[in-house]
Design a binder for these strands. Structure first.
Length: 133
DNA sequence: ACAGTGACAACAT
DNA sequence: TATGTTGCCACTG
């Protein structure tokens, strides 16, 4: 796999590490994660990274806490329904209106500082990786 | 090496 | 709001 020289991780893995930091009951959007990774135009790639999770990996990565910037769940044409994604979030306390929009100013994740991102990419571990390194 | 592929986002209408 | 267009880019055969 192609890896970033600094983080030693692929962009996909970087996305997964960031996504792991989103707390229960909070959401963020694809472009926000792209900005945290200093790739402000890679929102589509963030979405693809989450789509690329295997079934087993998706049990550990809270992929459902990433929605679009409009405040709605995407997956409009995907196998996993946006309705199911919204239901997962509602179980965590994220509220949606009758049109399926949530208020990102209320339920949006505050994010990480650049220093926190750097530390995470340098030493963070994915759940299926050994802690021994 | 390169064209195709998306769970996006910004903008226009 | 909803829909269509376009730019975007890491990853894949």
């Amino acid at each position: 796999m192609k890896r970033d020289a600094l983080s030693q991780r692929t962009f996909f893995e970087q996305v997964w590490l960031i996504t792991l930091q989103i707390p229960r009951g909070k959401v963020t959007w694809y472009g926000f994660i792209a900005e945290l990774l200093d790739a402000p135009h890679a929102a589509r790639t963030v979405g693809w990274a989450l789509h690329a999770l295997t079934t087993e990996q998706s049990r550990w990565i809270p992929w459902h806490r990433v929605i679009n910037k409009a405040g709605r769940c995407s997956l409009r044409n995907a196998s996993f329904s946006y309705i199911e994604q919204q239901a997962l979030l509602e179980e965590e306390g994220v509220q949606f209106d009758e049109r399926g929009y949530t208020d990102l100013t209320v339920f949006g994740w505050e994010g990480l500082t650049p220093e926190e991102v750097q530390a995470l990419l340098a030493q963070g571990r994915l759940p299926w990786e050994s802690n021994q390194g």
